[in-house]
């Protein structure tokens, strides 16, 4: 920065835009003003004296810009496709959800082959969402798991978002298949939500994958395998079990809400 300040008269002529100043003087004053706070303040005082309407120059420029922005086109929004992928879906959700839909399709085919047996759709529906829910949080399925695990977004809300994304695919598919084979959705809807919420509740201590695999194993041993030796609908899937499933949903949801802060490590 030059320590030689311009003379007051030169600064006044420069501020007034006097054509008597030659180019070299104008550039010299401009270069000096860029780095000299003292002279800029002095110039502000001169401006108020020489051209009172110039004192509110910044405010007028800002107002002008606001008007131009308001008159112009709105900023382009982010592509919706990427926004959905970014906010709701885990990259690893797609193959696991596809696998769950494949299991559902196989169960539907089995129900058509042997219509007299307890429907495989009914037997599998309660645990069907657990596969993609577990997959969406698996360090082996999500390539960016390590980065995700160290980010502030990890927690209950992200877990709920991904679970909801799974349910938004699985539940309509189950409804469609139920409609096709004449199965009452009331028989599987509450068990499905109950076991999904139980997975979330247990995942705070066990991890999502362990909780989902554990519930799958218990369901297989306790409900699925015994149904092969019995023609009756398992008691847990009868209409009389509905209050129990409702209670499980409420309890699991309460546990998730109470332990909400504990989901920071998954």
């Amino acid at each position: 920065m030059s320590t030689q300040h311009p003379e007051v008269l030169a600064l006044e002529l420069y501020t007034a835009g006097d054509p008597g100043l030659d180019d070299a003087e104008v550039w010299s004053i401009e270069a000096h003003l860029e780095t000299c706070e003292q002279c800029r303040q002095q110039q502000t005082g001169i401006l108020a004296r020489v051209d009172p309407s110039g004192a509110d120059l910044l405010a007028r420029v800002a107002d002008g810009l606001d008007l131009q922005i308001a008159a112009g086109p709105p900023p382009a929004p982010a592509p919706a496709r990427f926004a959905v992928r970014q906010r709701w879906a885990a990259w690893s959700l797609a193959p696991w959800t596809g696998m769950a839909l494949g299991v559902l399709a196989a169960a539907w085919l089995l129900s058509r082959v042997s219509p007299g047996e307890t429907s495989m759709v009914l037997l599998l529906a309660p645990v069907l969402p657990l596969l993609p829910v577990a997959g969406s949080w698996s360090r082996y399925a999500d390539p960016a798991w390590e980065l995700l695990a160290g980010s502030p977004r990890v927690g209950l809300w992200m877990l709920l978002r991904r679970t909801l994304a799974v349910l938004l695919v699985i539940i309509p598919a189950l409804l469609l298949v139920s409609f096709m084979i004449g199965l009452a959705p009331a028989l599987w809807l509450l068990p499905c939500l109950g076991l999904t919420l139980s997975t979330l509740a247990l995942s705070e201590k066990l991890g999502v994958t362990n909780a989902a695999v554990g519930i799958w194993a218990l369901w297989t041993v306790g409900v699925l395998l015994p149904s092969f030796w019995s023609a009756d609908v398992p008691p847990v899937l009868s209409s009389s079990a509905t209050p129990v499933w409702g209670a499980l949903c409420l309890i699991a949801a309460a546990v998730v809400a109470i332990r909400a802060r504990g989901y920071a490590r998954l």
Partner: peptide
């Protein structure tokens, strides 16, 4: 130890793991 502290720490933390995983698409 606390979830709320973890969140605050993670907001101010940049991390490059040894095995950098990414979404290829």
């Amino acid at each position: 130890a606390k979830g709320s502290d973890l969140r605050e720490i993670r907001r101010e933390l940049g991390y490059l793991p040894q095995h950098f995983g990414f979404y290829p698409r």
